Every structure is written in C-alpha cells, then in structure tokens.
Simulated scan of single mutants.
Amino acid sequence: MTRTGELLALLTAAGGLAGAGWLAVGADAGERYEAGLVLGLAAGLAVALLRRFTTLPPGRRRPYTYALPLPPPDWRAPLPDPHGEPASLRPYAEQRARLLSDAAALGSSLRHSCALAPRLRAQLTSYATTASIQASNCTLHPAGEGGPCGPDPAYDAAYALGELVAAVEFSRIGMRALEALVTERPLRPDPPCYFNPLHERGHARVLLPDASQEAAVCHGCALGPAPLLVPSAAGSVPYYDSDAVDARWRLLGYGAVAPDSGAAMIAAAHDGFRAPPRSMRGSGGKAPRAKVS
C-alpha cells in the first residue's frame, strides 16, 4: 500500500477508535459494559486492518524463521554418483522436488510482506514456482522400470538421468529463492559444477576443454575433470556429449556456464524446447538431435 493509503487507513482506524471511545465515555452506568465491549471490538478490528493492509507498526508481520518439512536434506552436500543408473538418483531427486513443492506456498505468502523491492519479490516468487513445477516434471521419466520405453534402453536411461539431475538443480534454485524471500536478501550466484552437477558447488571458473567459454566447476574438477557419465550405445559418455540429455541442460551445464543466480535455468524451463518424446523414438522415427561441441 502507498504512504497515502497507509495514512488514510491510520486516520480511519484512529477515527473508529475515537468514536468508540466517545460512546464509552458518554454511556450511562448501565451501558458501560456494552460500550467497553464495542470499544474493544473496534480496537481489535483497527489493529487487524492495520496488520493486514499496511506496513505501519504493528502492521508488518512476516515469519522470521525458515523451516523445511522434515527431514530436510543438506542442500549443499554433494550427491552420490549414480554411475549411469537413474534408479540410484531418483529417491534423492524425488525427495527434493517434493520438499520444494511443499514449501512453494511460502513464496506466495511472502510476496506482499517481504521488504525487498516489488520486482525482485515477484522474480523470486516466480523462480520458486517455476522451479517447483520443473523439478516435479523432471522426475516423471522412470526409464528402465518395467522394461525399456523405447528401442534404445541406453538412450532412455541417459535421458531419465539427465532429467533427474535437472530436478535436483531446480529444487536447489527454488529453495534458494524461498530462502532469499525469507531473509530478504537478493539471490546470490551459486552455480553447480559443470563437469558433474552432483559434485560440490562450482566455486571456481575454468576454461572448458574446447576453449569456447568458461564455466563454474568444483575444486576437485578444477584440478582434474571427473564428468557425470551417462549410458550410450557405445558405452558411458559425459552427459554434455550425450544426445539423449536435454540440449538445454547440456548447453547451460545445468547453470554452470552462466553465473546468474539460476536465471538461465529458469529461462530454459520457459523456452518450450524439450528432448524428443518417447513416442517418436518408439515408433522407429529418427529424432532430431542437437550437436554440442
């Protein structure tokens, strides 16, 4: 609410209290009880309106504690290497996506009460909502469960593994956005490791082997790359060399290429480009695949 609106609300509340007080003072002895009750109700209503519609004391009230549904994971701890098996990563990805989904309502509750600039509040709320939807969508590819879904089981497994890694990263982005709303601090860059997004966070930046650009990497991979491997017909390959992994995640390195607080991943979630659907691969048609150098 604007300052003018807050002033009007304050004057209205003061007028209501003054009127109720005048009635209480002017009431007869037998009516004092009813007048006091009216005064109390008017005071309670005035305070409730100020708390709901203004930021004036005692108007602004917001939660100052940040609690995740139990049991909360250690969001900064590296995850175990799935060794090309989606089933090994799925429980972790599903748990984090579920926790973000449960907490996503917090963004809406803080959208109007957080002290951050309105544009930043809206951006962080959008991050949390988009990340929650994308993380949930990325866990809906149970490749290898109940038989392969296409003529190339390795392709299906690599695609599912790439999506689960994306779910893990989107869950982290969404929770960081909610934490920024609660602490009223802008979202800070916290990119993953380009070579393996399941490693520790990418606190170092190195030139990629093809010398095309820099990317964030963990301290271990800065000394010697240990890429995330996914299955292929010719054997295990790094995820960024696999045509089965969504081109968005490969090109962005799950956000490691652009040090922008997750904005690139959120934008990628909106761009509408998806990996070829299973129906296209299962029908024997050759799916178009992007070449990533």
Results as ranks from 00 to 15, higher is better:
A9G: 09
D190G: 07
L39T: 13
T130S: 10
I133R: 10
L70S: 11
E179T: 13
W22I: 14
Q123D: 15
A222F: 10
A131C: 03
L79G: 08
L11Q: 12
T12M: 03
L23Q: 07
Y33E: 09
L198P: 02
P197I: 06
Y66V: 08
V206D: 10
L99I: 06
P288R: 15
R201K: 10
L100V: 12
H199F: 08
A258F: 09
R121D: 06
A122R: 01
S109R: 13
E145S: 08
R62H: 00
S236A: 15
R3H: 07
W75A: 14
Y127N: 13
P227E: 14
R111F: 06
Y239E: 10
V257P: 07
Q134S: 11
D190M: 13
E200A: 14
V217F: 00
A166M: 05
F170E: 11
V38N: 05
A258W: 07
A258C: 04
R32M: 09
G16H: 14
A13I: 00
T12I: 12
L187H: 04
P191W: 00
A244Y: 02
G150I: 02
V47M: 11
L17H: 01
R172V: 08
P225G: 07
L45K: 01
R281E: 14
R176G: 07
L181D: 05
G44P: 02
R119I: 04
A180R: 01
A177K: 00
T12V: 10
G285V: 13
R76G: 15
G107T: 03
G5E: 14
P238Q: 00
I173A: 04
V206E: 00
Q95G: 09
L70H: 07
R62P: 04
R76A: 15
P238E: 13
C149R: 15
C218I: 09
T12K: 08
G224D: 06
I133N: 15
N137H: 13
G150S: 11
P189F: 10
S242T: 06
P288V: 11
R205T: 12
V168T: 09
A264V: 05
L49E: 03
N196P: 02
R90F: 05
L229P: 08
C149H: 13
Y159I: 00
G59W: 04
S108A: 15
L68D: 05
S113Q: 10
R51W: 06
V292Q: 11
A264G: 11
R201S: 10
A275F: 01
P82T: 09
G224V: 03
P227Q: 12
L11W: 02
G16D: 10
P91D: 02
V230G: 04
S279Q: 11
S126Y: 14
P231T: 01
V168L: 11
P191K: 04
V165M: 00
G224F: 05
G174F: 00
S136W: 13
I266N: 01
H112D: 13
P231A: 05
G15E: 07
K291P: 11
A105C: 10
A9F: 07
A263C: 09
